[in-house]
Design a protein around this nucleic acid. Sequence first.
DNA 1: CGCATACTTGAGCCGAATCAATTGGCGTGG
DNA 2: CCACGCCAATTGATTCGGCTCAAGTATGCG
Lengths: 262, 262
Amino acid sequence: MGSCMVGRFRHYFSLTPEEENLLLRLEEKQIEYRAGETIRAKGENCDDIYIVRDGWTIISTQLDKDVRSIFDVRLNGDIAGIGEISFEHALYDFIALTDAVICPFPRDHLSTLFRESEALARTFYTILSRDQSLLYERFISLGRRTALEKLAHFIIEISMRLQMSGHAISDHFPFPLRQDDLADLLGLSAVHVNRSMNELKRHGYIAYDKHEFVIREYDRLLRIADFNPQFLHTPQTHWHHQKKDGADGADGAWRSKLAPPR
Amino acid sequence: MGSCMVGRFRHYFSLTPEEENLLLRLEEKQIEYRAGETIRAKGENCDDIYIVRDGWTIISTQLDKDVRSIFDVRLNGDIAGIGEISFEHALYDFIALTDAVICPFPRDHLSTLFRESEALARTFYTILSRDQSLLYERFISLGRRTALEKLAHFIIEISMRLQMSGHAISDHFPFPLRQDDLADLLGLSAVHVNRSMNELKRHGYIAYDKHEFVIREYDRLLRIADFNPQFLHTPQTHWHHQKKDGADGADGAWRSKLAPPR
DNA sequence: CGCATACTTGAGCCGAATCAATTGGCGTGG
DNA sequence: CCACGCCAATTGATTCGGCTCAAGTATGCG
């Protein structure tokens, strides 16, 4: 089996064998974690950067006995820990939500990689850049959206990220987040997450059983969430759902082209 | 007069003359904007990266006729636009709040700079890294803090950032944000910002006249905000306020050392 | 002086939090 | 195979922080 980074970078341009080797080096070491285990706790040494190779993980912090904040979900092919590169000790927790396979590598590998290949460096930036706009979009959720909108937006975000990282079907996917995880991620109470999720379900927009999630009315969700796919570098081909019920003035806004990396 | 980047980098290590020249190159071009002007609008070409040399600026987006979200305030010495490096068109607006001096430079300059000096590259990362933890901290505000806490936290953040970027006194500074800016930044309504600010004022924790801001009880604010200075790379010497009224169990938490950049 | 743009204050309402209790699945051990 | 306990999900009742609407006050500026 290959590397998940190689796959991801191929998303943007074709790699030379040397570049492929450089990337593979980042995933030389693989560590398995069980659901719930802490990959790297706040305060620990943070010389390493991580690639999530498999499983769902979160970056979070425990503010108090019973108040937590989750900053991000890191999935297959995502990078974690660059935000703390310049600190001596990690500022936040990095935790496996499900069983997970993680590839840690020393941060110096990055410098080497950048030195060896301009294209890799650029693509690395591309990915980091996407991650930041991801944060910005969740910012909007936290600051300016209702519970229903927050949930709709997050569900779509996840569905698209999963699809981009190789998950075949975008409207049917595993969803290991518990309701209190969603709460801490979206700035809600678990109780209210429950009510809102059930409202989405009752309307038939979504369905879920155990931790299998189904999006039944993609475009309805899109409209609720006012979702802007630009920030994910989503190629148009990923967008077939929007077609039906297309008589919508705001449509053009997200019928946008992929920004080609340069 | 020198470069604000040079000053900022010196904060972390001493520069060789060559490195200083590389940095100066980033600020070769300077453009002045008037308060309210848009430096770079959403949708525009974003080949440039910006250094804020003087003035207050924000990164924001207009979601609707009367709903806006502000992601960040960029001050003297801050960098803007790297988050969009990989996109063809800017995703967010970059706006001058006060009269401002901005130094745009082509993104390629960054690659050159990275190639020429390992130390500069690392410090650049240090700064970006701080910016991300800044975002994370505001995340906590948006998701898990009350209006009073949000305001207290933001006020302290700004006061410390200003001080770090050369502003002499940390508890007395200009504050050009209007109440509806604060609202859009912290996920509140302008009306509620008003009430909460006045509550802080009534208690005597802060004072402001026009756009001059005074922090009267720093440690009280710190306690309200549950502020963690670690994420700003704050050297201990900046911390004299905490001394008085020190009989506080949680004190040790933020009496932490600066993480030296490496 | 008159208009515009903040800021301020009050009244009423609503979304979401909190508290509390119940349900249902699932693993463990008897 | 059932009893027990745990934990997530669910549901109801109540409270509250913050929003909206609306009116009034500064302050500044052409």
